[in-house]
Structures are given as structure tokens and as C-alpha cells.
């Protein structure tokens, strides 16, 4: 039945970035980090070789959630926090489509926390981009669930009293099979991480540090600036020791269960540096999320990448396994097994 839904014509001609730019005027504030993310995604799309009509962007509510309007693909700008639900229905009904979810820290982790949790634990084959700017931008500057404790905002003039949630820890706790982090100002890194997410089969969760120039400027000091980020961040590379710093003279090692920074001669890195393993026990990835503050570098890149059966795949597998000739005889179904004839 499903093949009657889309009479897809011959494959489209090779595409370029411009093919993914919609005719709508982009309405984010000048200087917003969202522009860079949009450009990165539009640049990535043609390289994936997926026809434009097979791609759907689904979002919730918030600044980030305007994203689908600017992508010349199919799209749905839904309701606050619920994007994963629409995306789950769409992807499980139509596994032939590539479905992306765009959300923010308020949309995804406050009002929509429950849906994000379940999309990840089910392993629905969705690419989920969470733009984290640690603030409610569209409603003009209230604290968000990722705002740091004590943050003074319009809704918290004496400082917030609720502890923030770390998006990656949330995703890891939900056992998301692909968990990554990047930042809006490092376009090269963002492109690499987005490509990895796109190519992962299953739920791919990417936190993107995103600057809100109006309500929470410089929310991620250190990692956002080109001048400081080499020392403020360690880029995770599968199978490689965690070395960072402009001079490549710093590394991360474990002291018991605690990651700590060591300095060394770049020519002679110590042998006990932590070697990144995307397939390792998620507890290791969890420890990497604790790299922040106290001169610790923030970890950027792919924290975890493992394969497991997807929800949409399993749902459609059950359908396929039960589709036997004659098994869908409606008259037989309606008649049931306990009918009788009245003459």
C-alpha cells in the first residue's frame, strides 16, 4: 500500500546548496548563531545524495524551530516541545524518508523533555539537532533548563535556583546510540559532526552550542572564540588519545573515575592519555560530559556511536513479516470466527 503514497519521479538532477534554500526571508536576529547552523545544514544536504523530496525537517517552537521554513525540503513547524512525536509518527509510517528534528534547550528539554527521552530510548531513526543557547530567546529572555545556576534573567532577577540539565547526559542516560556536540562558530567541525549524524542509522543526537546575541551573548566563553577554543576544548577522535591546546601540549587522562588535564612536551605525549572510543561503555562518554569548568576542556565531537535496531525498522519489519497473501481478507476479518446464519 505504501508505494501508492508517493509516485516519485525519476531521480532529481545533482543538487547544490542553493537547491535547499527556501524562498522565505530568514527572520533570525542579525548575528544569531542559527545562521551558521542553517548554512552548514544546507551545505551538507547535497552531499548526502538523498533526493530533496525525501527529506523532512520537523521542529517545535522557539527561535531554532523556525528552521524548517528556511529549508527547501518538506517541513513541519509544529507545537512546543512535541517535534519528536510528529517525527516519530512520520518516520515509522514512512521509513523511506529522512527525518530531521530541530529543537532548542527549552523546546527539547523543558516542555518536550518527555518526548525527547522516548524518541532516543526507542532509537527512532531521527537526526535531532538541539540548539543550546541556555536561554528562552523567542519569549525574550527567560531562564532555560540549561541556564547555569544563579543566572539572572527577566524571570529570575535574583538568580535561578534550579540546577541546569546537561543535554548530553540526558541523551546518554536515554541510551541514545549517537551522541555528539559541536559549536556554531566552528563551521568545519560542525560540518563534520552533522555529516556523521546524517550517516548514522538510528537516533542521532547533536547538541550545538549556539550563541544568542540578544539575550545571552557569549554563553559559551572559550569554545566559541577562534582565539581561545583550541585551549578551551578537546576534540574527540575515535581511537586517538585526547590531546588539545594550541601547542598540542595538553591531554586528558583518568584519575580513577575523574578526568583530569596533564601537560607535556608535544613531542613526547604520555602513554596513559585517555584514548577516545565511541563504542565504549556509555559511562565513559558520561565522564567526558563532566569536562567543564576548573580549567578542564569542553569535549566536542562524537561521544558515542553504536548501532542498534531502530524503532521504525522494527515496526515495519513486523508489518512485512505478517504481510502474507490472503491474510488481509477484510470480509473474513469482519465475519470473525463465531458468526451464525439467520435464515
Amino acid at each position: 500500500m505504501a508505494d501508492t503514497l508517493t509516485a516519485s519521479p525519476a531521480p532529481s538532477a545533482p543538487m547544490n546548496r542553493q537547491d535547499f534554500v527556501s524562498d522565505q526571508i530568514v527572520r533570525w536576529c542579525p548575528g544569531c548563531g542559527d545562521y551558521a547552523i542553517l548554512a552548514s545544514v544546507q551545505k551538507l544536504m547535497p552531499s548526502l545524495g538523498i533526493p530533496r523530496e525525501k527529506i523532512v525537517f520537523v521542529s517545535g517552537i522557539g527561535c531554532s524551530s523556525r528552521f524548517p521554513y528556511y529549508m527547501n525540503t518538506y517541513g513541519m513547524h509544529s507545537i512546543h516541545g512535541r517535534a519528536p512525536t510528529f517525527a516519530t509518527g512520520l518516520k515509522s509510517a514512512r521509513p523511506d524518508l529522512t527525518v530531521w528534528v530541530v529543537t532548542g534547550d527549552g523546546d527539547g528539554l523543558s516542555i518536550g523533555g518527555n518526548h525527547l527521552l522516548h524518541a532516543l530510548r526507542r532509537n527512532v531513526d531521527l537526526k535531532i539537532l538541539l540548539f543550546n543557547n541556555k536561554i528562552y530567546g523567542l519569549t525574550k529572555g527567560q531562564a532555560s533548563p540549561t541556564s547555569e545556576l544563579g543566572k539572572k534573567t527577566k524571570s529570575s532577577p535574583f538568580g535561578t535556583i534550579d540546577r541546569p540539565i546537561n543535554p548530553l547526559r540526558f541523551a546518554l542516560a536515554a541510551e541514545a546510540p549517537f551522541v555528539a556536540r559541536t559549536v556554531d562558530t566552528d563551521v568545519t567541525h560542525m560540518g563534520q559532526v552533522l555529516e556523521r549524524a546524517a550517516k548514522h542509522k538510528g537516533s542521532a543526537f547533536v547538541e550545538i552550542y549556539q550563541n544568542c546575541i540578544v539575550f545571552n551573548d557569549a554563553a559559551f566563553p572559550g569554545v566559541q572564540s577562534r582565539d581561545t577554543r583550541d585551549d578551551a576544548a578537546v576534540k574527540l577522535e575515535h581511537g586517538k588519545p585526547m590531546i588539545f591546546g594550541k601547542a598540542k601540549d595538553k591531554g586528558v587522562k583518568l584519575n580513577g573515575f575523574k578526568p583530569e588535564v596533564v601537560t607535556f612536551d608535544p613531542a613526547k605525549p604520555p602513554s596513559d592519555l585517555l584514548v577516545h572510543d565511541e563504542k565504549a561503555n556509555p559511562a565513559v562518554a558520561y565522564m567526558l560530559t563532566e569536562l567543564e569548568g576548573d580549567d578542564l576542556p569542553v569535549a566536542m565531537g562524537v561521544f558515542r556511536d553504536v548501532e542498534s535496531p531502530t524503532f521504525d525498522g522494527l515496526m515495519n519489519q513486523q508489518i512485512a513479516e505478517n504481510a502474507k497473501p490472503g491474510a488481509d481478507d477484510l470480509q473474513k476479518l469482519l465475519t470473525g470466527s463465531d458468526s451464525w446464519e439467520v435464515k
Binding site: 509516485a7 530533496r52 523530496e53 517552537i61 521554513y69 525540503t73 518538506y74 513541519m76 513547524h77 524518508l97
Partner: peptide
């Protein structure tokens, strides 16, 4: 319906 080339569009609330 998504999958139909040429009809790409965005809907929302």
C-alpha cells in the same frame, strides 16, 4: 505527501 518531487513545502501552526 513527502516523497513527491516538486511539492516540497512547509506547514505549521
Amino acid at each position: 505527501v513527502p516523497g513527491t518531487a516538486g511539492l516540497e513545502h512547509r506547514i505549521g501552526g
